[in-house]
Amino acid sequence: MQLNLDAVPMGQPGILHQYAEKLVAFEYTRGNQSKPNSLLFIGGLQDGLCTVEYVADLVAALQNSDWSVFSLVLSSSYNGWGVGRLGKDIDEVAQCVQYVRDYKRQLFGSGKVVIMGHSTGSQDVMHYISCPNPRPRHPVLDKNVEPLMRSPVDGAIIQAPVSDREGILWVLKAGTERDSPETMREIYRKAVADAKQSTYEDGDRVETVVPLSVTARIGYPSSTAVSSRRFLSLTSPDSPRTPDEDDLFSSDLSDDQLQQTFGAIGTRELLSSKLMVLYSGRDQSVPPWVDKEVLLKRWSVAAGQDFWHQRSMVIPNASHALSDCDQAEPRRILVERVTGYLSEVGTRV
């Protein structure tokens, strides 16, 4: 497939859907063209509408297909990730999946729904298809919340499924322009100890926040408040022995631990086809000690051939979000893999 990236328009026509209270999804459309099948795209930390550039490539490539692309806005989108969590994310994704199914059913009678995640959106996709249904209740944050039953999806794709914990360990090992490795390790050690000691306050009803001066030096945006609970989930300091919710893709997780995620896909019965994984070969967030090909092989073994798509791959030279100026070929490969996958799912009975 030949894709002229220069021809992809900066603006995109579409429909803004409100799928739940204060939550929307943007469906890319052209004119009155309506399509029975739906690709639901979930971005990563700090992402929202139009922040992942290759989505425009997918929209262009799928223009003459039976697939429309939805870009989801979750409560954790943009700066909301600092106090977000995967459990709440998948409840909201479940609401969108059901909304889109109902919406398309009114127009076509039926249609396929595939969820695709980028970066932390990959954690959302994996959590959606592998954790218990409904998900476990959080002892503090779910006191007045009933987790939702999730309906099955027809396909699932994860792109740039990186480990936030290993990314931080890389910073601690290398240091920064401002801080030596020794200084970074001391900042991190104290931040973890403080977060563990005081994760909540006011009778466990309010989350505490890690000081911005600390999270910014570790590498998080200085404009985003990060709760102690989310900080501990992302850094997962007790891994690999006891990984926290966000630690799904670290290279040092044991085979037994991978059975709780990749290996659980089949038992949950929430994925009607196979999982496709597209790892970025030059991902800036992945430490040099991680062997990406070996990691994908371990994931494929854990998932099993019935739930692992054989066209999963490490995309050569691909950066984290395929947004650098030299990414035309990696983006072409990504588009080819995703459109091929969707074509397979669309023809399944």
Rank of each mutant, 00 (worst) to 15 (best):
L258C: 11
T261R: 14
I218T: 07
F307P: 02
Q284M: 10
L232I: 07
V294E: 15
C325I: 14
D194C: 01
S273H: 12
T267P: 00
R268T: 14
L258D: 12
F307D: 00
Q197P: 02
M276E: 07
T208C: 08
G266Y: 02
K297H: 15
L232Q: 08
L234R: 13
S285I: 08
S273I: 05
G219E: 08
Q327H: 01
P240D: 01
E293S: 14
R241P: 00
V209W: 09
D252L: 04
W299D: 00
R298M: 00
S227G: 05
Q305F: 06
C325R: 15
G263F: 07
S272H: 14
H320S: 03
V301E: 11
L322T: 10
V301R: 12
L295W: 09
S312H: 03
D324L: 13
R229N: 09
L253F: 06
S251G: 04
L322K: 04
V226S: 02
T261N: 11
Q197D: 14
D244L: 14
T261E: 04
F307E: 02
T199Y: 01
A264I: 08
A264M: 10
D283L: 03
W299F: 10
L232H: 08
S319N: 07
K196T: 09
W308F: 15
S285T: 15
S228L: 03
L253A: 08
A225G: 04
T235C: 13
K274I: 00
L275G: 00
K196P: 06
D204F: 11
F307C: 03
Q327M: 10
G263Q: 09
R311N: 14
Q305P: 03
D252I: 05
R205K: 13
D204K: 06
V277M: 11
V192T: 11
G281T: 06
S280G: 15
A225Q: 11
M313E: 12
P288M: 12
G203S: 12
P288H: 14
D204S: 08
L248N: 03
S254E: 03
D255M: 10
Q259T: 05
S323Y: 02
V290G: 03
L234S: 13
Q257N: 09
S280W: 05
S273W: 12
A303T: 03
Y279C: 04
Y200K: 04
N317L: 09
A303Q: 01
T235H: 03
P240A: 02
H309Y: 14
A193H: 11
G266W: 01
T215Y: 03
D202V: 07
A321V: 06
